[in-house]
Write a protein that binds this DNA or RNA. Structure first.
Lengths: 232, 232
DNA sequence: ATTGTTGAATTGTTGAACAATACTCCCGCT
DNA sequence: AGCGGGAGTATTGTTCAACAATTCAACAAT
C-alpha cells in the first residue's frame, strides 16, 4: 500500500458512476439538449403522445421528465394545455444578468483565495474561445464563453453556486435563439474575456470586476436590443 | 373608475387562486411542512405505499410530489431504494453559508439603490423577532430571523435571487434539528440583526456588510459545533 | 467469518381507463 | 359577412393494476 490515505476519497469520487439514472432522467437529458441547442425553439408545444412515441417511453415517465425540466425553468407547464418550451421575457433576461452579476463578481473577488487550478481553468476557456473563433466556429465560441463564466463563478468553490450558475446559463440559451447571427454577439467579448483572465492571473481582482461588469452591461444591452427588435 | 392604474396588479395578485394546484403540489406542501417542522427527521425513508395510503393519493402523483421536494433539496432520491429526508453533511452546511454570504452581502451592497419599502421590510422583521423573543416564542424568533435574511437578499429585487434564498433557508432548516435548544442559537443575533437594519437605514452599507459577515461566521461555527457534537 | 444464494419486499415502468378541460368547427343569428 | 353558441374532438389530469428490475435480509456453504 503506497497510498495510505487517498484511496477512500478516490473511490467515493467514483460513486456517481454507480448511481445510474432512471428513464425519466435520461429523457430529461435528451429534451434538455434539444431545447438548449435550439432544435425545440421557445414556444414549441411538447405533446405527450408525440414525444412519448418518439422516445418510446410511457406518458407517466415522460411527465416526470417534463416536471424536471419545468423546475429548471426550461419548460413551462400550463394546466390542461400542456408543456411548452419556455419563452423568456425581457424581464427574465434582465433578472438572469442581475443574478449573474452577483455570482460572478463574487467569484472574481474570491480569486485570491481560490485554488490555483480554478484560476487556470478561467484562462483555459479563453484559449478555447480564441481557437474556436479562428476556426470560425461561433457556436463553439459561445459554449467556450459559457464555460468561461462558469469557471469564474467556480472560483467560489461552492457546489451550490456552480449549480445555480449552470442553470442560469442554460436558461439564457433560450434567449440566444433570437440572435440571428452569433458572431457579432460573441466576437467583441473574446478580448474582454482575455483581459479578465489576465487580471485574475496577475492578482488584480478590482479591475477584473470592473471589466466584468462592463461586459455584463454590454452583453445585456445587446441581447435586449435584439429582443426588442425581434418581438416588436 | 377612480383607480386608473392599480387594478391590473391587484388582479394579477389574485391569479394564484385561479390556477388550481394539482394534487402533486398539495401533497408536496404537506410533506414539506412535516419535513421542515421536524416531524419527518433527516434520514427517514418515505415509503410510497405507506405515504400513499396515508394521504390517499396514487403512487404516481406521490412520486411527482417526491420529485418536487427532491428538487428543493429537501429529499434525496436513491434509485430502487426510495426517497429519504435529506441528511445534511457538515460540508453542506458550510456550502449553504458560503452561498448565503454571496447573496446577502450583495443584497446589503444594493441597499442604496433598493426601493425604500424593501429596506423597511428588513427593519420590520427585526421588530417581529424582538416581539417573538419577548413572548418567549423561540420558534417564531427563528422564522423572523429567516425572513430578516430573506429581506436582505430581496434588496436586490431579483426574483431568481429570492427563490434561491428561499431554497437555501429551507434546506438549512434541516440542519437546525440538531440544535436541541433554539434560544442560544437565535437570541445572540437579535441585537446584531437590529444593528444591521439600523446601518442599512442610515445608509452605511460597508459597516452593515462587516456586521453581516460576522454573523455568518458566528452562526456557522455554532451550527457546525452542534453538528460535530451530535454526530460524533 | 466470509462468501454465495434464495426469496420477499420495494421501487421502476408501462399501459389502459376514465374524468376534466381546452380547442375546433359548424351552425344559426343578426 | 361577421359574430356568438354549442356539440364534438383531442389532449391533458389522475388513478389503477400489472409486471420487470433491483435491493435487502436471512440463510446455507465453504
Amino acid at each position: 500500500m503506497t497510498d495510505t490515505e487517498g484511496w477512500t476519497v478516490r473511490l467515493s469520487a467514483a460513486r456517481p458512476l454507480f448511481e445510474r439514472a432512471g428513464a425519466a432522467e435520461l429523457v430529461a437529458d435528451v429534451l434538455r439538449e434539444n431545447v438548449i441547442d435550439g432544435s425545440l425553439p421557445p414556444g414549441t408545444r411538447l405533446s405527450e403522445e408525440t414525444i412519448g412515441n418518439l422516445l418510446g417511453v410511457s406518458r407517466n415517465t415522460l411527465r416526470e421528465a417534463f416536471r424536471l425540466l419545468t423546475h429548471e425553468n426550461l419548460l413551462v407547464h400550463e394546466l390542461h394545455r400542456g408543456v411548452f418550451v419556455r419563452r423568456l421575457a425581457a424581464a427574465d433576461v434582465a433578472d438572469i444578468y442581475a443574478m449573474r452579476r452577483v455570482l460572478e463578481t463574487a467569484g472574481v473577488r474570491a480569486a485570491a483565495t481560490a485554488p490555483p487550478e480554478a484560476v487556470r481553468e478561467v484562462g483555459r476557456q479563453v484559449d478555447e474561445g480564441r481557437a474556436a473563433a479562428e476556426a470560425g466556429d461561433w457556436v463553439a465560441v459561445g459554449t467556450a464563453n459559457m464555460r468561461f463564466h462558469r469557471a469564474i463563478a467556480a472560483l467560489l468553490s461552492s457546489p451550490r453556486v456552480d449549480e445555480s450558475m449552470a442553470r442560469l446559463l442554460a436558461e439564457l440559451r433560450l434567449a440566444f435563439h433570437v440572435m440571428g447571427e452569433l458572431r457579432p454577439f460573441h466576437e467583441p467579448y473574446l478580448e474582454g474575456n482575455a483581459r479578465i483572465a489576465a487580471l485574475l492571473a496577475e492578482g488584480d481582482p478590482e479591475r477584473a470586476e470592473r471589466e466584468l461588469l462592463a461586459y455584463f452591461d454590454a452583453a445585456q444591452a445587446q441581447l435586449l436590443a435584439a429582443y426588442a427588435e425581434h418581438t416588436g
